[in-house]
């Protein structure tokens, strides 16, 4: 157990969206404790770089407790690193060994252009939601919340899908850079619930089309997305999306 793990880091540095990027090696970085989270480790490295007069490594991260979905690093080739059900902000250095070399890259996908270093633009995911990932109700008086009873199991399944944090790891992990798990999760949540029923056909058709417009690939059922998902969103959501899509295109709406 170590407070100085002497890790070697190989980090993707890219000055801007148009610049060519490259890996930069930081050897035997001092002061890395096994109790640190991965992002805290990068904080320590950055402080060292600034003291040397170098520009800090840019990376995203906000809540640092695995819920905001902002952190987005590929660690040793895996989105959010190798630990199951874990965002990279919750990945602790204790899962590495002293002297390890760790490769850190941004989430890679055509639809996620690099902004700088490890920071990418995931605005495409917002645009998928804007295409129909909601129940179209305005703010105002609504029927009493208990006026509509919803089967607990269905509600729980909707919740499981709704737990998606929108980080995009599913896209980064997919060889096709498909956003099907992300989109499928929202479609599943809203099509399971009675509130979302009225516009389910229009919703799925528009959201799936938007995925294509954004340049995400198709789903080939490889399951990498589910394995990388920090919230362990099930692959079943993609099956639901496909079923809903077929239903939509064969019915009038």
């Amino acid at each position: 157990m170590s407070d100085d793990m002497k890790l070697n880091l190989r980090v993707w540095r890219q000055a801007g969206p148009e610049a060519a990027g490259a890996f930069v090696d930081y050897k035997a970085v001092p002061g890395i404790s096994e109790h640190m989270s991965f992002l805290e480790m990068l904080d320590v490295l950055n402080e060292m770089l600034i003291h040397r007069g170098e520009v800090a490594i840019e990376f995203d991260g906000d809540c640092r407790e695995g819920i905001c979905g902002q952190c987005s690093l590929t660690v040793n080739g895996q989105a959010h690193g190798g630990e199951r059900g874990t965002t990279v902000c919750q990945l602790h250095m204790r899962s590495f060994r002293e002297g390890d070399t760790i490769v850190v890259e941004p989430f890679r996908a055509k639809a996620f252009p690099v902004i700088k270093d490890l920071v990418v633009d995931r605005g495409a995911l917002d645009r998928i939601i804007a295409a129909g990932g909601y129940v179209s109700v305005n703010t105002g008086p609504k029927p009493d919340a208990n006026g509509m009873r919803i089967n607990k199991d269905i509600s729980d399944r909707a919740f499981d899908a709704a737990a998606c944090i929108g980080c995009g790891a599913c896209v980064a992990a997919c060889p096709n850079a498909s956003a099907s798990l992300f989109t499928g999760a929202k479609i599943t949540q809203l099509s399971l619930l009675p509130q979302g029923d009225a516009e389910r056909n229009r919703r799925v058709a528009r959201m799936v089309d938007q995925m294509d417009i954004e340049g995400f690939g198709n789903c080939s059922n490889l399951g990498e997305c589910e394995a990388a998902c920090p919230k362990e969103i099930s692959l079943d959501n993609i099956a639901v999306m496909k079923r809903e899509y077929l239903r939509a295109i064969f019915s009038k709406f």
């Binding site: 129940v135 609504k142 009873r149 607990k152 509130q195």
Partner: peptide, 16 residues
């Protein structure tokens, strides 16, 4: 009421 109408999946009892 507003959040339920939006499809927010609040915890429910077995009776729904």
């Amino acid at each position: 009421d507003q959040c339920v109408a939006q499809g927010v999946p609040f915890a429910r009892e077995y009776g729904g």
